[in-house]
Computed example of a mutant assay.
Amino acid sequence: MASNSSLFSLEQVLNVIGVLTVLWLSLKIVLVIGQVFRVHVLSEKWKGVDVASYGPWAVVTGATAGIGKAYAHELARRGLNVVLISRSMEKLKQVAAEIEEQHSQSTKVIQADFTQGSELYETIRANLQGLEIGILVNNVGQTKNRPGYFLDDDNLDKYIDDMVNCNTLSITKVFDDFFSQALGIEYRSKGIIVQSVMPLFVESNLSTHVKRFWKISAKTFARQALNSVGLTSRTPGCFSHYVQVQAGCGGIFSSFRKLQSASSAPASPPSHAKSSRFPPDGHVKEWGC
Rank of each mutant, 00 (worst) to 15 (best):
S104W: 02
S104C: 06
R87Y: 09
E101W: 13
A70W: 01
H73K: 10
S106L: 14
A96M: 04
A70T: 02
L80N: 08
S106M: 14
S86G: 14
K91Y: 04
I99Y: 02
S88D: 10
H103W: 04
R87S: 14
M89W: 09
A97R: 10
N81P: 01
A96G: 15
M89L: 15
N81K: 05
I99E: 07
E101N: 13
E74I: 07
Q111R: 12
R77M: 12
L75G: 09
A76H: 04
A97K: 14
K93G: 01
I85A: 08
S88Q: 05
A70L: 06
L75A: 09
E101K: 15
R77L: 12
A70V: 05
E90M: 13
I85E: 08
V82L: 10
M89T: 12
N81C: 05
L92T: 01
T107G: 10
A70K: 02
K91H: 11
I99N: 07
H73W: 03
Q102P: 03
K93E: 15
A112L: 05
H103C: 11
E90L: 12
L80P: 01
E100L: 08
S106P: 06
I85Y: 05
E100M: 14
G79H: 05
A72S: 07
I110S: 03
M89A: 13
K93H: 07
V109A: 13
R87D: 13
T107L: 10
V82A: 03
V82D: 02
V109P: 08
I85W: 09
S104Y: 00
S104R: 09
S104T: 03
V109H: 09
A72W: 00
S88G: 01
A70I: 07
K93I: 03
L80A: 04
G79C: 08
E90P: 10
E100N: 13
A97C: 08
E100A: 10
I99G: 04
L75D: 06
S88E: 03
Q102T: 10
E101G: 05
Q94K: 15
V83D: 02
A97E: 14
T107E: 10
R77W: 11
K108I: 00
A112K: 06
Q94I: 02
L92C: 01
K91D: 09
K91Q: 10
V83Y: 05
E90Q: 13
Q94P: 01
R78Q: 11
L84Q: 01
H73S: 08
I85K: 09
A96V: 06
E98F: 11
V109M: 11
V82G: 00
Q94F: 10
I85T: 10
A70R: 00
E90I: 14
Q105D: 01
L80I: 04
E98Y: 11
I85D: 08
A76V: 11
E100Y: 07
V83W: 02
Q111S: 12
N81Q: 04
S106W: 13
M89S: 14
E90W: 11
L92A: 00
M89N: 14
E90T: 15
H73I: 06
Y71F: 15
K93Q: 14
Q102M: 08
